[in-house]
Nucleic acid binder design. Structure first.
Lengths: 198, 198
DNA sequence: CGTGGCATGTAAACGGTTACATGATTTA
DNA sequence: TAAATCATGTAACCGTTTACATGCCACG
């Protein structure tokens, strides 16, 4: 009778669109929640079965429509109630785990230039993330419907955008700082611009 | 011969200060990395033993100095090498898990006002976080030494501050938006200001 | 007909937290 | 001497990922 969060993500997913299969739920989660949540098949399929057993979702049509056979599911009333109860509970902050920040913190211990490489990589990832989120934003604006979910989606998206932009801004300036710092230690006396071709 | 990240956090911790015990390492991690990393005793103590067995750290004086008996450890040369190698590897983004954003995304499914409460709670947590980080910043500036680690610490701190501020900014404006949205649905016709003291 | 992608599933391993057990030391 | 806190440790449990197994369908 106790549920892990995978269960609620699935209930939530089915609450906004019915008759999805495990595969489609996985896709939907990756596309829509990609920036703040993830689930693996190994988690999704067993959880779906369990939710059916508990009556929170029900098998709805093995849609073999044109495609292959795939079992789809829909939320039951009990499932909707369960989801609502969970939504009302205070959210938990999962233990922080930011490997980038950890490696940056120990930057002095690393070989020269390592921190710089990490920051560059972080910036690339954040640029990609930002592009994705901006794409979603554009689509959402065009979507422009009376769907009552939309305001919440835009809000969530807004936080994602704000965080990505803040991280990227920080990254740009950190790059400059690090370049100055680490050049100092690596080329303490060099003044000529000539590059020996190894 | 394979290591989880706990091992590297401990190696890193000992790289910046020697002769720490498991207990002290736990404290140090909570204080210094609290905003981006965490470790539990159940992870720390077994890992320390394993690192000793592998020769990456060594027991250094069971400092019973005035205090209780506690086993302290120091990095070996092999340990330092191992840490450096890990630092040079590309960092990994752990799977995102932001329960707040998940609940906000499903906001429409929740009872009216729930999203608002969550955002308020988020803002409180972020304000606390920000205060903590600003405290650390102040201390670090006062610390003002030639410690070569300091620039990296400030950089890391800077990212934490940037993210916390961005989240808080977002939170303030989201609060306004949500208040407008959710009041609409809850008090569709009310015009009087009188509050029944039910 | 064979290959590659779609779709579902399972078992094992892993990383990590939680809860618990223990004793020693300080403080009241 | 009682309570609080320091300090170390372990066992059980949990959520999750990974790797693997399988079969179907479409396409060349």
């Amino acid at each position: 009778m106790s549920h892990n969060r995978t269960a609620y993500v699935l209930l939530g997913g089915l609450s906004i669109q019915s008759n999805l299969s495990g595969y489609e739920l996985h896709q939907a989660i990756k596309e829509n929640f990609g920036s703040f949540w993830g689930e693996s098949y190994g988690q999704i399929y067993p959880t779906l079965k369990r939710l059916v057993a508990e009556g929170l979702i029900e098998a709805s049509g093995s849609a073999t429509a044109g495609k292959k056979r795939r079992q789809t599911y829909a939320l039951t009333d009990a499932g909707r109630v369960c989801l609502r109860e969970w939504l009302a509970q205070p959210f938990q902050n999962d233990p922080p785990r930011n490997e980038f920040m950890l490696k940056l913190f120990f930057g002095h211990e690393a070989a020269p230039g390592v921190a710089l490489v990490h920051v560059r990589e972080l910036n690339e990832r954040n640029r990609r993330m930002l592009a994705t989120l901006e794409g979603i934003e554009k689509m959402a604006r065009a979507y422009q419907s009376k769907d009552p979910n939309l305001p919440y989606w835009m809000l969530t998206l807004g936080l994602g955008l704000a965080l990505a932009r803040a991280a990227l801004d920080w990254g740009e300036s950190a790059l400059a700082e690090l370049a100055a710092m680490e050049v100092d230690t690596r080329e303490p006396l060099k003044t000529s611009e000539a590059e020996p071709s190894s």
